[in-house]
Design a protein around this nucleic acid. Structure first.
Lengths: 197, 197
DNA sequence: TATCTTTTGTAGTCGCCACTATAAAATGCC
DNA sequence: GGCATTTTATAGTGGCGACTACAAAAGATA
């Protein structure tokens, strides 16, 4: 079979695959956080030299932005699937928290949500990239709730984002999956109490 | 009146009051976070030179630890007062969240809890100082709940700490007091649902 | 006034940070 | 083989981080 990969470009061939590099960078960023990962850490882990990293990704912050995109597409909470229009709100939002609890504790060394944790870093560009994703997530939750409960959409979206942020923080502090799942389950009680007719 | 302040020590007198310095440092740390405040920022704000800061506080991390102590004593959520033994658990924990929502949005430029936010910084000593305080807070909540509901103490303490962490994050992101208070109020619904007979 | 003590201001230290200038190496194309 | 193109590796850059060596200054004590 003749894939596009077989069409070699003209110059000297790359010694590393930029797409695989994103997976490696994701592990580092997720385990230590954006600020605590240096460009030297990244180039060491990738087995390349700084100029290769900059020619492939542009900057550390741009690499982080691409890492975030890959993360939300492959490992983030699939809000679009969970929040299907028509699904009971309390049930759907509870499922979001439960999935978050599972995802945030999926990998041993790196707890929490890469995007949520990224909003607290000290680099403007990296922080904005993370904020864009978390605010997009809030919008999805808001619109889902607004379909059936317009007056509650804001407070329910705020509450859900707040709990997710808290769960991410707990996971990052090393709290185990059972306790995080228990917390998510208890948090879901607020949905039932608020949405009960 | 002859206060202890009138007894001058022997050497050259200090040009600044280390106690007032802690208040100045607190404003900086709270507004920008530990990592984003440099020693140069601190010495500029205090109107002193680096050697004076180091002779007075030892290090940046020790100054932060003293700042944290002062913060929890004067501006933190007074768990000891709110969680009086015998007070209904749902009511008491709701009051904790409401007080946190108010405190975290008290100062315009600096949102969130200094201790909670401090647990995410990249300096080991500063982070541990912050962690000691947040884990002590969890212990107080746990013991209060355990008096009347031993089986629920762990999950209620986890949930309360999780929500407080989330509220702090929202405040730090610039969300206004009304929304944060609304979120705290909604979070309290989980207490009622869980503790209702 | 001379001495002792403590803090001050000047002027650095060294290390790590993100990032880059430059030229050689490795390919395709003609 | 020779040329164009692209990535590579070497070896840096300047800037900012926490922190400090040192001597002068400012007071109490004798």
């Amino acid at each position: 079979m003749a894939t596009t990969k077989d069409i070699r470009p003209r110059g000297r061939p790359r010694r590393f695959d930029p797409n695989q590099g994103i997976a490696v960078a994701q592990r580092l960023f997720h385990a230590r956080g954006y600020d605590a990962v240096s460009v030297a850490d990244l180039t060491d882990a990738l087995g390349i030299n700084p100029p290769s990293l900059y020619s492939a990704y542009g900057s550390k912050a741009e690499l982080f932005a691409r890492t975030l995109r890959h993360y939300t597409e492959t490992q983030g909470v699939p809000l679009g699937e969970i929040l299907r229009p028509g699904r009971p709100v309390a049930e759907a939002l509870s499922a979001v928290l439960e999935d978050a609890a599972n995802k945030y504790t999926a990998h041993p060394g790196s707890g929490g949500c890469l995007a949520i944790e990224g909003t607290r870093c000290n680099d403007v560009d990296a922080r904005n990239a993370a904020r864009n994703l978390t605010s997009a997530a809030r919008d999805v939750i808001y619109r889902f709730v607004a379909e059936t409960h317009p007056d509650l959409a804001d407070v329910l979206a705020d509450y859900t984002v707040t709990v997710m942020s808290g769960l991410s923080a707990m996971a990052r502090e090393g709290v185990g999956r059972d306790r995080i799942l228990g917390t998510a389950s208890l948090a879901a009680a607020a949905y039932r109490e608020t949405l009960s007719v």
